[in-house]
Amino acid sequence: MTAPLAVKNLSRSFGGVHALNDVTMVLEPGERRAIIGTNGAGKTTLFNVVNGQIAPSSGTIKLFGQDVTSKALHRRAALGLARTFQITSLFRNLTVLDNMIIAVQALAPSHFVFWRRLSGYRDVIAKAEALLEKWRLADIRREEVRHLSYGTQRQLEIVMALACEPRLLLLDEPMAGLSAAETHLATDIILNLDRSITVLLIEHDLAAAFKIADRITAMDQGKIVAEGTPDEIRQEGNLKKIYASGGAARTTEAHQ
């Protein structure tokens, strides 16, 4: 089987800063991979480059065996790539249902139709409703997103990414800012995802990352510094090595 994601010698610098420095990484189909590392380690930059938001300075990106290094965002999405954002990225003035409809419709054949009302596309609406039902958001489907609690918005952030039936899902700090109970719920959502979806997530909550991930990649200053199973990474020496380079302050921050 071809790897859902294979990046090779990926680099990207902003001015003199190497946000990504020669990153090579391959995901197995169905794998759950967590990326850990201090702030500024290059984790979100890696997501942005894979997703197509920013171009790499050098290196290649392959999705499901296809070279997408110079392909536009929407072409990568069409191959089955979806992502969530660290800063909640929803349609704030629209209802929960409308948010879902727009997400479901993105890759539906009807998405460019302007001569017929959307309410005629029962299948799109039914699918959006079904997803809300499945992820227990159906009760609030008429609410406008800006009125929702932060935790619920984070949940919708993930469910929207699932709406286009991705084969590769990038989750950028899905637990950030969540209460303990909400973190538990979000962890459950991710653990319950079908194994046909490969998941790459950035997570500062190491307990959650260790629980979800099959393998863990640790980054620092744009480089991959360690990679292995949670058990291998958890060994005292390794974690210290990952977080020590940034000094004591960054170590405590990462353990919070």
């Binding site: 965002l73 999405a77 954002f85 349609f91 704030r92 003035n93 998405h111 460019f112 001569w115 017929r116």
Partner: peptide, 30 residues
């Protein structure tokens, strides 16, 4: 009909959050 169409919904999405639309797979430019 235009603003109530799938196309019209996509326009609202672009108004609200262009980057999310692109990440979802919409060709925002078109």
């Amino acid at each position: 009909v235009f603003v109530k169409s799938p196309f019209g919904y996509a326009l609202r999405g672009i108004r609200e959050n262009e980057m999310r639309m692109r990440a979802l797979g919409y060709n925002v430019w078109a």
